[in-house]
């Protein structure tokens, strides 16, 4: 199944709650209403049973934080990217980690660096961000101030 065919099938099912573009037969990008994220993932699983989350990318935009979930089925040349967006100042999005273990680590990382609250995440602790960064400091945000961070250096690391 190529990207265009999959995009059409999802549009039939979710109407205007998904909007797709296919850059090639191998790459499908879907803008998804966060409210139907789990349903879209479920529909992808029923179309492609071997699909799994490869990784997710967090991106700070002007009005919010976008999260791109990159999914790919084992054995096929296809990557499906589900794009969801949460509004600032406290972006909140549904967690994929609740239903797919592969998302647990990467959602923790995005929470660390971009301050996204993944609702329903089974283990919402820090992963990579050092203690020197406060809970409300997110180093991949555009408004992150390095000088502010440097004042925190010197604290004992947490083991």
């Amino acid at each position: 199944m190529d990207a265009e065919c999959l995009g059409n099938r999802l549009t039939e099912k979710f109407a205007d709650r998904v909007e797709w573009t296919a850059r090639s037969k191998k790459r499908l990008y879907l803008r998804v209403d966060p409210a139907v994220l789990e349903e879209v993932f479920g529909a992808l699983r029923s179309e492609l049973p071997q699909i799994r989350l490869c990784t997710s990318t967090g991106l700070d935009t002007r009005g919010g934080v976008e999260v791109f979930h990159h999914l790919s089925p084992y054995g096929l040349p296809l990557v499906v990217t589900l794009k969801i967006e949460g509004r600032k100042p406290l972006p909140s999005l549904p967690s994929l980690g609740r239903i797919h273990s592969a998302a647990i680590f990467i959602e923790r990382e995005i929470s660390d660096f971009l301050g996204v609250d993944f609702v329903g995440h089974p283990d919402p602790r820090r992963l990579l961000k050092a203690r020197a960064f406060g809970d409300d400091v997110h180093p991949l945000r555009r408004d992150f101030d390095v000088r502010e961070f440097k004042r925190g250096i010197g604290e004992e690391p947490e083991f």
């Binding site: 071997q50 799994r52 989350l53 490869c54 084992y74 797919h100 273990s101 592969a102």
Partner: peptide
Amino acid sequence: LDWGVVGPTA
């Protein structure tokens, strides 16, 4: 599949 494991491990 659940953990998205890759490579020789998968």
